[in-house]
Design a protein around this nucleic acid. Structure first.
Lengths: 395, 395
DNA sequence: TAATTTTCTCTCACTCTGAAATATTTTCAC
DNA sequence: GTGAAAATATTTCAGAGTGAGAGAAAATTA
């Protein structure tokens, strides 16, 4: 806070944060929202108009008497955020403008046979295709790409991507970054799924939340005070590694679909998918599910002790098989040991959580590039236009 | 950041933060430290002199040629921070001035037979006695009191104080607050011990650290990005509740001194203290210690997954029995499951960690009361005068 | 059509900062 | 000893920026 010039920057930042959250604002409305004086709002808006970052739109029809305000609207086409959820089987692409509007969504099978270089080029190609027609000259782009592995704090090193081994290390990530213009960042897919739920889904009001992703394996994302934590090497949240029994089983082995299928085979149960196990009433199947439940209970106890979250969101393929009766039993299990139990809810965004979280993070990066203070940029609660996506016919 | 007057406040805040960290500073030195211009430093110092919060001291003997700077010293007597560590058996009191100097330390057996009211009065009495002779008229006081139980986010509700049941609820805390002038805050003793190690002990350079307190029971404090986390009800860090075996044992039962003694009795081993078990080479004793080690390993795995701390500090009575060989084995145990293991070190402050952490937190509160920005106030790294305390003859 | 109300801009007094000039005090070199 | 050089502290001044309030513009109401 040395120079007085900082004041101008701070005022611009908070005003822009209000505008980027969406909604219709006249200068007078912005005066109220920001708490700045009318004179300052006028001056700052004038600057933004000169920058071409906002423009005057229609007059605001309030019905009240007096002069009508002019809507100040963001030149949303000045920024494009792209979120990618690169899964082991499916790759999802979502792009929006600076306001989170005009969404474009694609999904394709992941070409998992491709080597790192080719996979990176393939991905960059699809991303570019997604905004090929937006030919504005001074548009800023931010891409965030979710990967099925731990991403180190430097944002490039990938580890533990057993599902897609060619992205390990930093070859893949570096190549993607080179192949795309604009800022490109990478994140863990479970973390980004939580980011999505945190901003637009089940956890939108939670301060501290955990998301369990129960798919082939078991992963968890952790949000403390609405900030996702990954840790220096991305290990934070890998509760799949937690031991459950003295006989050296881990949560992942007992909860993930692969572990469930193996347990079923070992017990001589014939099932096609893990979901079948949950509706199988044979004693052998029940035993497997009991162990599933106990292991999930241990993970739940661990995260409750570790973070005391208001909410644990259940996502991933297998989570659909967790019914209300089981969540109730899980909660009882926790309460037997602890004075409190977080609320257990299912993901609201399902398969789209990761791509949405990635876009949200990309939007935050864009706001920062437009000189919004990082804290304010992260706190903006923009309403993405999701209705078209979340409707059954997603594509 | 609306008014330009905020700039002055911010500059005062950062300058005061430098002064409160201790050391000898002339105006010229402050110019360098703060990055402000010489003119601004002169002006802000003039204001602080008018407030009586600083005074001019001796001239700074640098030996270099040129005019000598005048030392600006904080009127340290304007604030008193008191830290109390109310344990089940011993109660420790530590008071310092605004700079963390002139420490006064007392310890007494906790009168655990007293009811909540009387215990509160007893405590307030000792606290007042500690600064009875500092009769400055405009002195600010901040007291922080560590309790052997979980403290809720509201700062008053106490839960799980099995060691000192009369402090449960908010009767005790409210009475203490009423009985003492100045701001009074409460905290969990394990959290405050970690605060002490974080600021003045083994974790002084760690960003993220965990402290295991292995005493009669088992507790843990958690610091993420140098901020202690307690959770809404103070549950965060209670890894003693974590299940270890399928036969429903918890970490606390296997690791705490009480649990160890019970296990020893059950196994027919005759020992006087838990420490004896660690030097007993009989197979039965070894089995108990093996289970201790395995349970501690589970807790270590859990915190590594949960926070990926650089450091885990071992404190509490029993931790002295954990030798280098065991910490090595524990680390190997973690590495068998996880790609990384935090460093395991012993507490540096031992019994004083809690009182020191409490004083540190009190100092932070004082700085805020003197209008230092909260973030800056927490980031000040003051050097307490500890040499006299940490020397063998503590009292 | 005039009065009222609301939006937006313009002017002005005020605060605060940093750069530069100045005064002061010290050491160093001869 | 004395002047030069150097470091500290203060003073002055221009510049940047804000908010209050006046004023202009545009709408509704009577």
């Amino acid at each position: 806070m040395a120079e007085t010039a900082d004041a101008r920057w701070a005022n611009r930042s908070s005003l822009l944060a209000v505008l980027l959250a969406g909604g219709q604002h006249s200068r007078a409305g912005l005066t109220q929202q920001t708490g700045l004086s009318a004179a300052t709002v006028s001056r700052v808006v004038e600057g933004l108009l000169d920058e071409g970052l906002v423009r005057e739109g229609a007059v605001l029809q309030t019905g009240r008497r007096g002069r009508q305000g002019v809507v100040i609207e963001v030149a949303a086409e000045r920024g494009i955020a792209v979120g990618v959820d690169l899964g082991g089987t499916t790759c999802r692409f979502l792009a929006t403008d600076l306001l989170g509007h005009a969404p474009r969504y694609r999904e394709e099978p992941t070409p998992r046979h491709l080597a790192a270089d080719d996979l990176a080029d393939w991905l960059a190609e699809r991303v570019r295709a997604l905004y090929a027609d937006s030919a504005a000259p001074d548009v800023l782009r931010a891409g965030v790409i979710g990967l099925p592995g731990a991403v180190a704090a430097d944002g490039l090193g990938v580890r533990g991507a057993t599902n897609l081994p060619q992205i390990e290390g930093d070859l893949f990530t570096r190549r993607v970054r080179r192949a795309l213009e604009g800022t490109v960042a990478f994140g863990n897919d479970a973390d980004l799924a939580l980011e999505g739920e945190l901003r637009h889904g089940a956890a939108r009001t939670a301060e501290t939340a955990v998301m369990f992703t129960v798919g082939a394996g078991f992963g968890a994302g952790v949000a403390v005070d609405r900030h996702i934590r990954g840790g220096p090497t991305g290990l934070v949240g890998e509760f799949g590694f937690l031991p459950v029994d003295s006989d050296d089983h881990t949560v992942e082995e007992l909860v993930g679909a692969e572990g469930l299928m193996r347990a079923a085979r070992d017990a001589g149960i014939e099932v096609v998918t893990a979901a079948d196990l949950f509706v199988d009433s044979s004693p052998a199947a029940r035993a497997v599910i009991d162990r599933f439940e106990r292991a999930l209970g241990v993970a739940l106890i661990a995260v409750t002790i570790a973070y005391e979250p208001e909410l644990v969101v259940l996502g991933g393929r297998v989570s659909a098989s967790i019914d209300a009766a089981m969540t109730t039993r899980l909660c009882e299990r926790v309460r037997r040991r602890l004075p409190a139990c977080p609320e257990l809810v299912h993901s609201e965004l399902a398969d789209l959580a990761g791509a949405l979280g990635a876009v949200s993070r990309g939007l935050t990066a864009l706001r920062v590039r437009f000189d919004v203070a990082p804290d304010a940029a992260a706190a903006v609660r923009a309403d993405l236009e999701l209705s078209a996506l979340l409707a059954p016919a997603a594509h």
